[in-house]
Amino acid sequence: MNFLFNNILRNAAVISYRSHNSLKLYITAIQNITYIHTTSKHNNLMDFFDNKKNWNETNIRVGRAWRLDELRIKSNTDLHKLWYVLLKERNMLFTMEHECNRKVRLFPNPERIDKVEESMNNIETVVRERNTAYYTLETGETGERPVEDVVNLFGLPEKYPKNEYIIPKFMNTRWVKSYLEHGYINSLAVKKFYRLYQEKLRSIKRNERNRNFNHVQHLLKRFPDMDLEKLQAEYPEVDLEKAKRTKKARGHFLPKY
């Protein structure tokens, strides 16, 4: 019976070809089974391994991961239960993968790990959504970690997630010194870095512009009957009239334009 119970748990984790009330089914299945389920003598360390019938298989078929929309309609209790099902499933897959690697065997369907992890991430997303909704309703703020816009030591803007300080900021002389005395942000080195960085960004932009212009000229050369509106939509920054008149855009035919 324990084997059956484990089987149900495992199947419920990732199998998708069930209808929307799959979790409900699974919960009722658990409820039905728990009446006849007795704690077996053999230790549950075997939960770390796959079903015995899957041990020598080369192809283990499973469904897809749980989607966000499917999880959003579940209750918190259901999500909580499902999390532990997935957690055990993931541990099982890690164990089997390790053993396969040790024996130099191919681990069958390694995408199962990704599916379980995707499901777990989705559960976390849903729980987080519910938390933020609750705190926005109660206090007008999301209960998330507050994020501050700061200028970092390189003089660049950065998102700084706040954390708890051991002593207040103004008492922390060591931290303040670097900002106030040295003047990190206004120092010569930072200004030079910032200037060069901006130059780099500008040159990237300019190169892209030139590259696109060149490309459009060659396109006009090779395909003189091209749809110009679509070309303009693809490269909105390029001046088509100018590109048409250039030498590069002329092919070995009488100019049309």
């Binding site: 360390l45 999500l79 909580h80 999390w83 957690l87 164990t95 206090t139």
Partner: peptide, 17 residues
């Protein structure tokens, strides 16, 4: 509002070797 973790979801993994 004192946000807290109301739903406990441990993300530790263990593998038996």
């Amino acid at each position: 509002g004192n946000p807290q973790l109301r739903v406990f979801l441990p993300n530790f993994w263990m593998k038996l070797v």
